[in-house]
Structures are given as structure tokens and as C-alpha cells.
Design a protein around this nucleic acid. Structure first.
Lengths: 219, 219
DNA sequence: CCGTTAACTTGACGGTTGTCAAGATAAATC
DNA sequence: GATTTATCTTGACAACCGTCAAGTTAACGG
């Protein structure tokens, strides 16, 4: 994990990478990931546009100049960071999907994970929405955003398809619509996490439980 | 319209405003609105964080220093702009709501307006999402964002309540959930307007038509 | 027509930013 | 251990930002 990033080249390790030496697995790539993890903390706190390379370096073991040794520019670093994080993040519900023995159990596991990630990973989710919004104004970001949006849509679809299967019914909406709905609920919950965290968690819990059945065919 | 901004003071016309002269209705306020309208064009193109006061002034009849004559700082200008625009924007569907004679007619009018605004006002909608996302990282923005989010939620609810009434049924979801769903669909449509505008419009058209009935009680 | 005040312009300030070149340090090779 | 290569630091650069003070122009009141 990390190096391949979901088997899709970021176009991020170009000629600037120094020639590898021996069988030691890519020390260069390890540093990139280490730097990305440091950067993600700062980016999650300050957001995309408000984070400078010096902020990132300050929260890392390195100095601000090192960024250009491992990344071409700021955009490549940030895109790599978000992609690095999301590539594992989109697998969050997969064990719930696989281990659930009934539709009720799946819903319970799903909302539990939703609450958990809203509580623990709020800065990362904020960063994702920040990057997605920025992509509406900066064309170079759109390809990455579209890719990750596809991952998330597939993630939601895996949950919903399994849910329908366990309930012995079909799904009434397309993957795109299902994702839009869940994402809309999630984003509202995230927005409310600052001022009313407890109420926000309860609301999305109840909303999802109420809404999921209506996404199935009655047949 | 414009001066009162939905009967809610922005806290934006403080002591710095010069004493008014005669009965001529607030020349000062007129200039504020004129400046806001100029700024909105630039903000819609470049987004919140990427727009400088010099960019705004360049697309206006004024110089860059004039901003501090009418607004305390950049944030106050931007907040005023978005609020200025949204305060009329949230009334967009009201005539459809009032003039619709049947539930089908209301749906037709609703999706027609949706398509229209996605086509014509895409930059303004991008700006709104940009500001809402920025509010997750900048506390001073949250009050305004929460206020406008409330307006939008009410707007969606007026449509849905009227739709239910015309169909002789009740609404199955809360205002917050209804807004989250519509907003999720709308945001996905807006994101796709850059690369696939036609497909995006068709998709949200069909999605809304499919989804609205399922938000009503079957009773 | 004159004086006063509002409206607006100009230019500068301190600060921050991304980027990069040049040098220092550490590591690995022979 | 010497030399070559990779890694990392430092400092500087040009550009840009928001803000504001000082000065200019225009409009209004008498």
C-alpha cells in the first residue's frame, strides 16, 4: 500500500526521481509516504489553500526545502497526500460488508463506522471536500478528484448492493444517485460536527437508518 | 432588496459608514451593492481563496483601495457578496411553487429551474460551495454559512411540502434530510458541469423525478 | 462661487508565499 | 578510508497579498 496507490499511476514519480540503487525497496518512495503522512495532519487542520509548504515542513522532521526534492510542486504533494489517504479510506466499510449476516447487522455496522469516522477522521474528510471544491476552480485537480469520487461511489455501492442482497431485494437507485445521497448526508453531518457533534452523529444515524430501506425496490 | 438582506443584519455596516446626507436613499449602500455585484463575477470565476482584492477591483470601475472604504476587510466583502446573492437566489423556486396546479407540474417546473440555474449560475453555485467548505476551516465564516444553509433548507422544504400537498400525501423525511439529498444531487451535478454538462443535466433531471415520489408517505 | 465633506486613487508597508540554487551533511560504494 | 552519490538545509529571489495613510478629485451645501 502507498506505493501503487490503487494501481493507478499518479504521474508523480517522473524523471526527477534519482536512480534506484539496489534491491532495498525504494527508500525514496518510503520518504514520500512519510512526508505525505506528516503533511496530511497539517492539511487536515488548515485546509488546502491555507496550508503553506513551511507549515507542512514545520510539522515534519524536515525543512521546507525538502518538499521539492520529493515532489515537483505544492499541487503534486497535496494531490499525492489525498490520494494516499483515500486509497485506504475507501476500504473502510468492506469488512462490515463481508462479515454482515443480515441486513440489520449491515446497517448497524455501517452507521457505526460512519459515526466513528466522523468523530476520528473529521479533518481528513474536511480536506477531501476542500480539494473537491477547489477542483471546480483549478482544472489540474479535476482528474484526481474524479478518480477518487469514483472510488467513493463504488464504496457506497458495495454497501448498498450487499444490503439489498441480504434483504432479498433489488436496489432502486443508480450508483451515482446512491452516492450523491449518502455524500449529501455525510457532508451536512461533517459541517455540523464543529458546533453540535453529538446531535450531528445522532441525526445521520437516524437518517441513514430511515433512508436505506427506501433505496430498495419493494418487490 | 440588497440593503436589508433578508432582514438580518450582517453586522457589516458599522461605525465606519459616513453620516448620511439627505433623503437620497443611501448612496453608500448602493455602491456597496454595485461593488458586490462586480466582485461576484470575479469570485465566481476564481473562487474564494484565489481571488485578491486587486482582481476584484480590476473587474470593477474602481481601484483596489476602494474596497476598504466600503468594507472593513476582505472577509466582510466576500460574506456580504455571497449573502447579497443568496438572499434572492433562495426565492428561485417560489413562483413555481405558487403557480403549480398539480404535482407533475411542480416537478416539471422544479427540474426546469434546476437545469436553468446549473447552466446559467454555475459560477455562483461554485462560489457558495467554496465558501461553505472554507467555513470548515475558518470559524468566522460559520455563522453566515449556517444562516444561508438554513435559507436553502427552507427553500427545498417549501418545494417538497407543496409537492406533497398537491399529491395529497405527507412528507416522509425531515427538512434537513430533504435538503441534504437535494444538495448532494445538485453538488454532483455541478461538479460534472465542467466535463459533461449535457449528461449532468439529464442525470439530475431524471434523478429528481425518480427520487421525489419516494420522499412522500405512501399513505 | 467657495468651502467642506464625501468619494476615490495612488503608492507604499510588512508579511507571506512557492520556488530554486548552492552548499552542507550523510550514506553508500569501491 | 576516499569518493561518489543521495539526501537534506539554508538562504535568497521575485511575486503577491491585505491593509492603510496620504493625497487627489468630485460632489454637495450654503
Amino acid at each position: 500500500m502507498g506505493a501503487d496507490l490503487m494501481e493507478e499511476s499518479t504521474g508523480a514519480v517522473p524523471s526527477l526521481a534519482p536512480p534506484r540503487r539496489r534491491g532495498t525497496v525504494d527508500k525514496h518512495q518510503e520518504r514520500r509516504d512519510q512526508l505525505a503522512e506528516s503533511a496530511l495532519v497539517t492539511l487536515g487542520e488548515l485546509g488546502y489553500a491555507r496550508t503553506s509548504l513551511r507549515d507542512i515542513a514545520a510539522n515534519s522532521p524536515f525543512s521546507h526545502g525538502v518538499v521539492h526534492y520529493y515532489f515537483r510542486d505544492k499541487n503534486e504533494l497535496i494531490v499525492y497526500c489525498v490520494r494516499f489517504h483515500k486509497s485506504t479510506c475507501v476500504l473502510r466499510y468492506d469488512d462490515v460488508v463481508e462479515s454482515a449476516g443480515s441486513s440489520e447487522e449491515l446497517v448497524d455496522g455501517f452507521v457505526a463506522k460512519l459515526r466513528e469516522t466522523l468523530t476520528a477522521d473529521a479533518p481528513m474528510h474536511r480536506l477531501w471536500y476542500d480539494l473537491r471544491t477547489a477542483s471546480m476552480f483549478e482544472e489540474p485537480l479535476r482528474a484526481t478528484v474524479a478518480l477518487i469520487d469514483g472510488w467513493l461511489q463504488d464504496m457506497v455501492w458495495r454497501v448498498l448492493a450487499r444490503y439489498a442482497s441480504l434483504a432479498g431485494k433489488g436496489v432502486a437507485v443508480t450508483p451515482a444517485v446512491a452516492y450523491a445521497i449518502v455524500d449529501g448526508l455525510f457532508q451536512q453531518a461533517l459541517l455540523a460536527m464543529h458546533d453540535q457533534p453529538a446531535e450531528s452523529l445522532d441525526r445521520i444515524d437516524r437518517s441513514v437508518r430511515d433512508l436505506l430501506p427506501s433505496l430498495l425496490l419493494s418487490a
